[in-house]
């Protein structure tokens, strides 16, 4: 039979042996093993990113290819008040929301770390805000903040605390605080559950030792919990900052960037200009302008909080 004949063919035997030897080579093998993952990264990550960066240097519009225009988009953006406002908004949004998310998230994690009845259920319950699709919770917040139908305003007026409804989304700073509150509400579970996982890896013997040394609960928190939690804190902080900085859905569903562009984030502005506005090049430039901020935030939160010596109890150099 043909198959048998081929297998017995001395030439093919030699080829197979050669292939086998080739596959034994560690370099070849590692390249081969990495190929699937690398190709996924290249196709789905590197290529779109590179394309986005490239488009930022062109004047491409929807339905029309562009030409290279160098830094023109960026120069024009730096003279654009709306863009600068969106940068300011994004920074305020990220910094304030992250501080609250971490403060409250850590608190929640510490509470959940205690022995409480129905622990598993309570923990699952806490995750709910994170599980609900963002758009749904955003629409709920949109109603909560409505100028005419806000349940908060209604409640307060029922108690006689206010005589006119609060204009949550119609006044620039009110609107900023409102969307930050919505983001915090949504983001706390992620932080809390991650930090809870970190808390559970801390060996109880460390607390016992500290207690024997006479440490009070604040000192135990300060000198045992915080240092031991620092590695995971760094990772969670990095992710949280990235998610918050690039947030889109909440803003788009609640305010669409209004009032007077007071809640436009860089991501929402990039979308508004690129897709409904058709200015793909400019939109891409705004999106690309987010990269330095993101890299900076990542470096700060990752390396800044990962000073190993300090974690291990000795002084920093």
């Amino acid at each position: 039979m043909a198959a048998t004949a081929t297998a017995l063919d001395p030439r093919s035997g030699a080829a197979l042996e050669k292939l086998g030897r080739w596959l034994d080579n560690r370099t070849v093998l590692s390249v081969l093993f990495m190929f699937p993952a690398a190709s996924i990264l290249l196709v789905f990550l590197t290529y779109p990113l590179a394309l986005g960066v490239w488009m930022g240097f062109t004047d491409v519009k929807i339905g029309r290819p562009g030409i290279f225009i160098g830094l023109e988009n960026y120069i024009s953006l730096f003279n654009d008040g709306v863009f600068l406002l969106s940068v300011f908004n994004t920074i305020v949004y990220t910094v304030v929301a992250t501080i609250f998310k971490f403060g409250l998230g850590l608190w929640l994690a510490l509470l959940l770390n205690h022995t409480i009845p129905f622990k598993a259920y309570v923990r699952a319950f806490v995750l709910l805000p994170y599980i609900i699709p963002t758009v749904l919770s955003a629409i709920a917040f949109w109603w909560i903040y409505d100028a005419q139908f806000s349940i908060i305003s209604w409640g307060l007026s029922q108690f006689g605390l206010i005589d006119r409804y609060i204009d949550f989304l119609g006044v620039p700073w009110n609107a900023r605080w409102s969307v930050i509150a919505a983001n915090v509400w949504r983001g706390i579970p992620f932080v809390a559950i991650c930090l809870l996982a970190g808390l559970q890896t801390i060996s109880p013997s460390l607390y016992e030792a500290a207690a024997l040394d006479g440490a009070n609960s604040w000192q135990r928190f300060r000198h045992v919990t915080v240092p031991m939690l620092m590695p995971i804190l760094a990772v969670v902080l990095t992710f949280s900052v990235l998610f918050t900085f690039t947030d889109f859905q909440l803003i788009y569903a609640i305010t669409r960037g209004g009032p007077l562009n007071a809640t436009h984030l860089m991501a929402t502005l990039a979308f508004q200009r690129a897709i409904p506005g058709g200015q793909l090049g400019e939109g891409a430039a705004i999106a690309t302008a987010m990269i330095p901020f993101l890299v900076g935030a990542t470096i700060f939160s990752y390396y800044g909080l990962q000073r190993r010596k300090w974690q291990q109890g000795s002084q920093d150099d």
Partner: peptide, 21 residues
């Protein structure tokens, strides 16, 4: 104007009008 129009989207006035505001 009624307060809040700076935050109004396309359905806000429908809601407020039908609520006799």
């Amino acid at each position: 104007f009624i307060p809040g129009t700076l935050s109004w989207n396309d359905v806000s006035n429908n809601k407020a009008f039908l609520d006799s505001q």
